[in-house]
């Protein structure tokens, strides 16, 4: 009797494990192995300085990947994030250079990102365009808008160009400052990741995103408005891409419409997918996404530390993305059944 009772219990434990841990466990393990190998190969890898450095380097990618997790989990994709990053960063920079205060400047940039996100969402739902096409078009249009707006010239945020010195100080602190040695960019990434985790895992909005991505029809039968949920996911993505772009221009502190964030959308999507979010929708966790972002960040950092040529770095990063997703796909049947 006890035996027959115990068996379902262990089965349940296994199910629980595979549901809540399985996906992330694989990625976490890969990350751990990578860190151990790098720590052995190079004694500078495990220094606080280097780790904080990695953290800062992945922050902007990470902030956008949090947004991308929502978009992919809802069954869509957003290719325009690199352009939103550039456009909104430049807009905020220009508003500051024009002498406005910090808060209105940030709001203008972030709202622009949200509006572009909503347009992406409207085109992909009520507009009945596949989001791949809609956001491919927006990638070009938003980049073009940034070029028109800046006339293709770089925007540099400094006092000489007209920024209010106080505002300039606050603005550059967002990009370059640190709290207790932790770079501000990393602080923002951690806060946004926590909020994103809560939103996806603990709120009815996150639930609806996963339901819509899992099965549009079943979501509709449950009374969920598929269109509104997807538009909200795009809007969130747009806002986060804008914020990352603003942090970028605050860090540098300049940007150029023809260069900033070029091709960034591919890094963001790659990191999110390495983290276990399904391109088909319905599956995704913020913890996985963070691990995916860290894998790409640690790999890039490690390759630099160990002196691998930049050309070989590009190749190896691509290889890791393919291998990571391949392992995920090949093991999907075991997880499902």
């Amino acid at each position: 009797m006890t035996g027959s009772l115990a068996q379902p219990a262990t089965k349940a434990v296994k199910k629980r494990f595979s549901r809540f841990g399985g996906r992330e466990t694989g990625v976490a393990l890969a990350l751990l192995v990578m860190c151990i190998v790098l720590a052995i190969l190079n004694d500078r890898f495990l220094t606080t300085n280097n780790l904080l450095n990695i953290g800062r380097q992945v922050s902007l990618l990470g902030i956008m990947a949090v947004g991308m997790t929502f978009v992919l989990a809802s069954g869509e994709v957003d290719l325009s994030v690199g352009s939103i990053y550039a456009f909104c960063g430049l807009v905020t920079g220009m508003v500051i250079v024009a002498g406005y205060g910090l808060f209105p400047s940030l709001m203008v940039g972030i709202l622009a990102g949200i509006v572009i996100g909503i347009i992406n969402g409207l085109l992909s739902t009520y507009g009945r365009l596949p989001s791949l096409i809609a956001t491919l078009g927006m990638l070009s249009m938003v980049r073009g808008a940034a070029l028109i707006l800046t006339d293709g010239r770089p925007v540099t945020v400094n006092a000489r160009n007209g920024a209010n010195p106080d505002v300039l100080g606050q603005f550059t602190f967002l990009g370059q400052g640190a709290i207790a040695g932790v770079p501000m960019q990393l602080v923002f990434f951690v806060l946004i990741a926590l909020a994103g985790w809560f939103l996806l895992a603990r709120t009815s909005f996150g639930f609806r995103v996963l339901a819509v991505g899992g099965s549009t029809k079943a979501a509709r039968v449950s009374g969920i408005s598929v269109e509104k949920v997807k538009i909200a996911a795009f809007a969130l993505m747009g806002g986060l891409a804008a914020f990352a772009g603003i942090l970028s221009i605050a860090f540098l502190p300049s940007g150029q419409a023809g260069r900033t964030g070029l091709g960034l959308e591919l890094d963001v999507i790659a990191a999110t997918i390495v983290g276990g979010t399904s391109l088909a929708g319905g599956e995704g966790t913020i913890i996985g996404t963070i691990l995916g972002v860290l894998i790409i960040g640690v790999l890039r950092n490690g390759l630099v530390l160990t002196g691998v040529s930049p050309f070989a770095q590009e190749f190896l990063i691509g290889l890791v993305i393919v291998v990571a997703v391949a392992i995920d796909r090949w093991t999907i049947r075991e997880r499902r059944v």
């Binding site: 009815s204 079943a218 979501a219 969920i224």
Partner: peptide, 18 residues
């Protein structure tokens, strides 16, 4: 159409009464 196959049993039970 009916089932949210990638989600848990509990999530399926409450999906129309969020």
């Amino acid at each position: 159409g009916g089932a949210l196959l990638t989600m848990s049993v509990a999530q399926n039970v409450v999906s129309s009464t969020l």
